[in-house]
């Protein structure tokens, strides 16, 4: 698969703050790639180096075959950018803003289509000052789509969106991915990443600490599953082979297991024979958020002296 973005041993400091300390990543064409990490991990720094806004101190980056530091026009023609902070002229209308940016690109998307994609059709003729914060963020997204880019950089694109707007932004992004566009996004929303990303990297303190698909990140698919249920008070004791791994709490019983198929079989066959109904029975894997918290917690503990 052709490579859209290649980062090798990227480094960047602000004075004495080492924001990025040797990041290497590859994003393939047509992929939705998500960069996660705690506040200050270096996500925006990395993205803005790829966008050409910031200079790197070391390492190598290639974006669609170009070095973004040169500001090459042929690269900018193909990029769509949503920055972490909004930046639009307050006195222009939504339609004027979109048209202005469309004019900068060789093959822009039709205006009505762009505005429709971000759900601002009704606000088309409103000035930016009259838009809510979330609507301004959506206009920002519209600007990123105006040039019909083949590579999109989205730095926390749905921060401040209401749930409906977030959902439709996700659909828009999925739709763009379906058209073969490459999407490089940062996010603090695990739902967003789980829903959108083909591949994820977690960075902390300027380094990559985990990389993989959302479902398999850090061995998530092999990690212990948790079975939860409540026992009616009349029930007799659990069978011995289950009792060992069971934690009985006020909310019910929790069983941790590496082999949920077998454990479920043992549990349910016992319950059926004993004529017991297990209320609230569920099997859960660690969520992306659980994995994320675990990894970033470990890194935080390690980096303390």
């Amino acid at each position: 698969m052709p490579v859209a973005v290649e980062i090798t041993d990227l480094r960047k400091s602000y004075g004495s703050v080492e924001a990025v300390r040797g990041i290497s990543l590859i994003v393939n064409e047509g992929e939705v790639f998500a960069l996660l990490g705690p506040n200050g991990a270096g996500k925006t720094t990395t993205v803005e180096i790829l966008e050409g806004f910031r200079r790197r101190d070391g390492g190598h980056v290639s974006v669609l075959g170009f070095d973004p530091a040169t500001g090459d026009r042929r690269l900018k023609d193909q990029l769509g950018i949503v920055l972490q902070t909004v930046g639009v002229d307050p006195y222009l209308t939504v339609a004027e803003t979109v048209d202005m940016f469309r004019g900068f690109y060789p093959k822009p998307r039709p205006r009505a289509e762009v505005i429709e994609l971000v759900g601002l059709t009704e606000k088309r003729d409103s000035r930016v000052t009259k838009l809510s914060g979330g609507q301004q963020r959506r206009l920002d997204m519209a600007i990123a789509l105006a040039g019909d880019p083949s590579l999109l950089f989205l730095d926390e694109p749905t921060t401040g969106f209401d749930p409906g707007a977030r959902r439709s932004a996700w659909e828009t992004i999925k739709g763009l991915a379906g058209l073969g566009k490459t999407i490089f996004l940062t996010s603090h929303s695990m739902d967003e990443v789980q829903y959108l990303a083909d591949r994820v990297a977690i960075i902390a303190a300027g380094r990559v600490v985990a990389e993989g698909t959302p479902d398999t990140l850090a061995g998530r698919e092999k990690a212990a599953a948790t079975i939860r249920f409540r026992l009616p008070s009349s029930a007799s004791e659990l069978p011995a082979q289950l009792r060992a791994s069971a934690k009985v709490g006020a909310d019910g019983v929790e069983l941790e297991t590496k082999d949920p198929t077998r454990t479920m079989y043992e549990l349910t066959s016992w319950a059926v024979q004993a004529g017991i109904s297990l209320e609230g029975l569920e099997v859960t894997r660690p969520t992306l958020e659980d994995v994320y918290l675990q990894i970033t917690h470990d890194v935080g503990a390690e980096s303390k002296p």
Partner: peptide, 11 residues
């Protein structure tokens, strides 16, 4: 306001 940065990121 970030408007200049937006312009500079465009072609």
């Amino acid at each position: 306001s970030g408007a200049l940065k937006r312009i500079r990121g465009s072609p």
